[in-house]
Design a protein around this nucleic acid. Structure first.
Lengths: 148, 148
DNA sequence: GGTAAACCTGTACCTAGGTACGGGATGCAA
DNA sequence: TTGCATCCCGTACCTAGGTACAGGTTTACC
């Protein structure tokens, strides 16, 4: 079936393109994140090409701190335009959660930005309290100063 | 030492206030995320009150998909206004990463928003392709339509 | 001074999310 | 039609991040 290969992807191809392990594909299939692909006569999996994009979405969502169960929910929600009232309810919850995440990320980002353009007036005349130039720090105290 | 208790918090108090398990405090201490608190004469830990806020920051960062090692880095960066060039470099990298996360979250959010205000013209006259009203869906096909 | 609740350390165990391995079947190009 | 790369399935193992237990001190209140 060298001709059919043009449209359907084999396990290793999907894995490579999406940057995931082959075992992960089977794992996601077991978890219900990936629909069971159809098979060749011999039983080899053949995936539709957009599986690659789907995997990338899954991976992105995971990096954002969603569990696989949550990702499954999100995908489910994203697919149907006619959610059940329950699903709609959960979608609203997720949106609030996402807004919180964005707010938190923004806070962290601001803190990092401060770090990056840490303004040290000069090496010999710096008003910062945690300046590495030792004698400047003597006798100063500073509140802990974590992100927020 | 009932008087000293007013300023310093015991393990269970910190855990309760921050909403984490007591074991987690010790775990974070081992991991270097929490500085070793000083001890009572008998060896019991006594935490400064801002530990609670710190824990909340850690938990928030975790929910955003950062590993504990990354959280440690972030905290470290957040504390010092005079980063080493290396730390500065990593901070810049983190900012890019965070921007990506925010972008991804925004995409997912948009998709969920669509779900929430899914406009169904009416129960008998709906143009959506995955409308639950059966006969409307006959003969229609639709691209997969995951988030992006 | 007695005692119950909270704490200590060390070690064992748990869950989520993968990843690797073994032994056998398939796909496909030469 | 043979040979080698891939694939199959089932199962075992791994890492991160916790969480629980055991057996023994300390605290704090009566």
């Amino acid at each position: 079936m060298s001709a059919a290969k043009r449209t359907e992807l084999r396990t290793s191809e999907v894995a490579e393109l999406a940057g995931v392990n082959i075992q992960t594909l089977r794992y996601y299939e077991r978890r219900g994140l990936l629909a069971e692909p159809h098979r060749s006569n011999g039983g080899h999996r053949l995936y539709p090409p957009d599986t690659v994009a789907l995997l990338q979405v899954i991976k992105a969502a995971q990096r954002l701190g969603f569990t696989l169960d949550e990702v499954a929910d999100l995908l489910d929600a994203g697919r149907r335009r006619h959610p059940s009232p329950d699903l709609r309810e959960r979608a609203i919850g997720k949106i609030a959660e996402i807004d919180q995440k964005i707010a938190d990320l923004t806070t962290i980002r601001a803190s990092l930005t401060e770090v990056v353009d840490a303004r040290c007036d000069s090496l010999t005349n710096c008003t910062c309290t945690d300046c590495p130039i030792p004698y400047l720090t003597i006798g100063t105290t500073r509140p802990s100063g974590d992100f927020a």
